[in-house]
Design a protein around this nucleic acid. Structure first.
Lengths: 328, 328
DNA sequence: GTGAAAGCGCTAACAG
DNA sequence: CTGTTAGCGCTTTCAC
């Protein structure tokens, strides 16, 4: 079993040229004669040579490594983001170093530290909130930091986020249109900043309109938590509407309403979600929800990564209400 | 602004010791005196020093980088695998270099080449089939290759896969138990080897039992393709059972059956899926399905990565039938 | 236990 | 255009 990779030196020897000639052949804008180039490529092919990017970086200091940290990678929402992001990165010729925070409450600071050690050029945070000290260090070391759906109160970081408050407002207006008298707002126990923003904006609007709102919160951000919420809340026969700050919660709530608590949706209770994950569109659900544009979010992230000097610090991506069948 | 990272040399200077002392301090099994160590650590902290792993690798040649290539990263099945895998890797102190093949038909060879350039220690293939030449090169360069749910006809590669044929057999037996007379077997148009194995084993068993089987195939591996299959197949009133080689297909089929084709499930038609993705357990579905153990699959992969000399080349993970409500 | 010095594989600045 | 010569940041003999 051959152990070590072929080096440029070996290629040079075989091709009968200098090391630098080899290097140049594999450097985009270098000047090499056709003949030398051909000889080198031939030798390289025969030997199975590949540049060692790690060694390359040592000189360049452009690692092309983009750190991606996030938790809950199998949730429909996050996985979609990751999918689009990783495709885009590859297209930009960048590599994606993925660090899974395992669960959202875990401190992501150590992961970011690790990314420093790999000299990541930029770090994209899909979920979790980096402590201020880390943000400072990113800046100090020239590592670009991009936060998704995270709103930090500082102007020196890139943030791209969906318009949560407006989305929540759309949801509120829709439920008002349904003539709801008493609505629930359900969040998960992990109360991320985004969830909080949505719940708050929703509640404000509803109360402004004189509608009763009861808040529920608990469990992880999952289908099951939604079921639980439905089970507990719908004991109250007066509740005729619900805003679940996440589709996963909404889908669980919907199932609990119909299949356990014996409610007709939307006749007895109107339900609105947030995210527009694929499952929201499945025929058994047809969830009315506030759609985040995964595509748009990802594009903003990618362009922030690509530009040399990021002019925009906070980019808010618009959301839209997707009307399906769960709101009267 | 693109400030450069602090180097070991600077730390050495500040601590008043040699470079080597610094290096030793950050090398697990090295011999440094308490005092020197303390001085170094102090200086390092003050300066915000981090070892440069990239430079480290140049000497070590243990990059700790594990390449992961796959397509369809947002499908419930793949994303779950990736989630578990990335958590496990981190726990093993390895880093995950993620390359998204964008779509399954894309050749993954170039991605693997790229991984070579990064001197990945091992490569895990979540989906897609690497050409033989690439497999050879992995071996030649001492890069361990691990294929998930891929059955290559060679003994020099690590493969971990679910027991597809047995799973398909379980599905067949279950439908026979339902007294089905004419069943459909639905695969997606991308006909992966795994799908083919399932369909084949199922068909064989059914025909052996004298049951009529009609095959359907089309579209990507998605919910929508399942819907399409249901729509087209259930025009035939005689069909009273279906085996969808993937849960995503099964869920779509189920919805089409109930909501479009006016069938009661399981009374009129029994449906069995494969995978056991989270959605299969959602109350609106309650899909009877063959469960792959994501956990077990991942564990095998992780242990194959961890062991120095992989003894087992092909590891088959058992599957189980999860009885819910879609089979009579 | 410690420093000096020699690489790891590559790129870049500098003569020719 | 090409080879020679320095490094990039780190680890690792090897003497002391």
């Amino acid at each position: 079993m051959a152990r070590t990779f072929v080096t440029a030196e070996e290629v040079a020897k075989r091709a009968g040229v200098s090391r630098s000639a080899v290097s140049r052949t594999f450097t985009p804008g270098a000047s090499v004669s056709k003949t030398v180039r051909r000889k080198v490529l031939k030798a390289a092919r025969e030997l199975g040579y590949r540049v060692n990017r790690l060694a390359q970086v040592l000189n360049n200091d452009r690692s092309n490594l983009i750190g991606v940290v996030g938790a809950n990678l199998s949730s429909p929402f996050i996985s979609k983001q990751l999918d689009l992001l990783s495709i885009g990165l590859l297209r930009q010729g960048k590599q994606c170093l993925l660090l899974n925070a395992a669960d959202a409450r875990q401190d992501i600071a150590p992961l970011i530290e690790l990314l420093f050690e790999f000299r990541a050029q930029a770090i994209v945070v899909l979920s979790g909130e980096p402590p201020a000290s880390i943000v400072d260090e990113c800046i100090a070391n020239g590592v670009r930091l991009i936060l998704i759906n995270q709103r930090l109160d500082r102007t020196d970081t890139n943030m791209v986020l969906s318009d949560d408050s407006h989305g929540a407002d759309l949801a509120a207006l829709r439920l008002i249109e349904s003539r709801c008298k008493k609505v629930a707002v359900v969040t998960s126990g992990s109360q991320t900043p985004a969830q909080l923003r949505r719940a708050k904006a929703f509640t404000q609007r509803m109360q402004a309109e004189g509608v009763d709102v009861v808040a529920w919160s608990g469990g992880p951000t999952s289908y099951e938590s939604g079921v639980q919420a439905g089970r507990e809340l719908l004991v109250d026969k007066a509740i005729d509407g619900a805003f679940c700050v996440t589709d996963l919660l909404a889908l669980g709530f919907l199932d609990a309403a119909r299949l356990e608590m014996n409610r007709r949706v939307p006749q007895d209770v109107s339900i609105v979600g947030f995210d527009d994950i694929p499952q929201a569109g499945w025929k058994s659900y047809g969830l009315t929800t506030v759609a985040q544009s995964f595509q748009a979010l990802t594009e903003k992230v990618l362009s922030a990564l690509d530009s040399d000097e990021p002019e925009t610090r906070m980019q808010v991506v618009p959301v839209t209400l997707v009307e399906r069948q769960t709101a009267r």
